[in-house]
Amino acid sequence: KYLVLALYDYQEKSPREVTMKKGDILTLLNSTNKDWWKVEVNGRQGFVPAAYVKYL
């Protein structure tokens, strides 16, 4: 498993997404889509914009 760092705040806009705050450390679950990565944060799984996170 990889960890990624939230570069920006992101507010979920659909039930498939998750909210994150700048500085959050997220567990990367799937990065096959170049635009949306599946992550786990605070016990929830969902998608965030790939451009908003970077590998640690």
Rank of each mutant, 00 (worst) to 15 (best):
N30Y: 09
V39C: 06
D35N: 13
G23P: 00
K54T: 14
V39M: 02
S14Q: 08
D9R: 03
G46D: 01
Q11T: 15
I25E: 04
N42S: 11
Y2K: 13
Q11M: 13
D9N: 08
L56N: 06
Q11G: 07
K38R: 10
D9F: 02
N33Y: 09
P15E: 13
D35Y: 15
D24R: 02
L26G: 09
M20H: 01
L56I: 13
V41H: 14
D9M: 03
G43Y: 05
Y2W: 13
Q45K: 12
N30G: 07
V48E: 00
A50T: 06
A51Y: 10
T19C: 06
G23E: 02
L7V: 09
Y2S: 12
E40P: 00
W36R: 03
F47R: 03
L29T: 05
N33H: 13
V39A: 01
W36K: 03
E40Y: 07
K21W: 09
V48F: 00
V41T: 11
S31A: 14
Q45G: 08
K22Y: 04
N42Q: 09
K13M: 13
K38G: 06
G43V: 03
P49R: 03
D35W: 13
G43F: 06
D35P: 03
N30S: 13
V53R: 00
L26E: 01
L28A: 04
K34P: 13
W36S: 03
K21N: 10
T32I: 09
W37Y: 11
N30C: 10
G43I: 02
E12W: 05
V39G: 00
L29I: 15
V4H: 04
T32R: 12
E17G: 13
A6K: 02
A6Y: 03
E40R: 08
L26R: 00
A6T: 03
S31P: 08
P49E: 01
V39T: 01
G23W: 05
L5M: 14
K34A: 13
N30W: 07
P49H: 02
Y2R: 14
G23T: 02
T27P: 12
Y10C: 02
V39P: 00
T27Y: 12
V18C: 08
R44I: 09
I25L: 10
N30A: 10
V4S: 04
K34T: 10
N30Q: 14
A6E: 01
W36E: 04
F47V: 07
Y55I: 15
S14I: 05
T32M: 12
L3N: 08
L26W: 02
V41S: 13
D24Y: 04
Y2N: 13
S31M: 14
V4A: 10
Y8M: 12
N33V: 05
K22D: 02
G46N: 01
A6G: 04
K54I: 15
Y10I: 01
V18Y: 04
E40V: 08
T19Q: 05
K21D: 04
N42R: 10
N42H: 12
K22V: 08
Y10L: 01
K54C: 10
V41N: 13
K21L: 08
K34G: 10
A50R: 11
G23M: 03
L7S: 04
R44M: 09
Y10W: 11
L29R: 04
V53L: 15
A51I: 13
Y8K: 14
Y10E: 01
L3A: 07
D24M: 11
E12A: 15
A6F: 02
A50W: 02
P49Q: 02
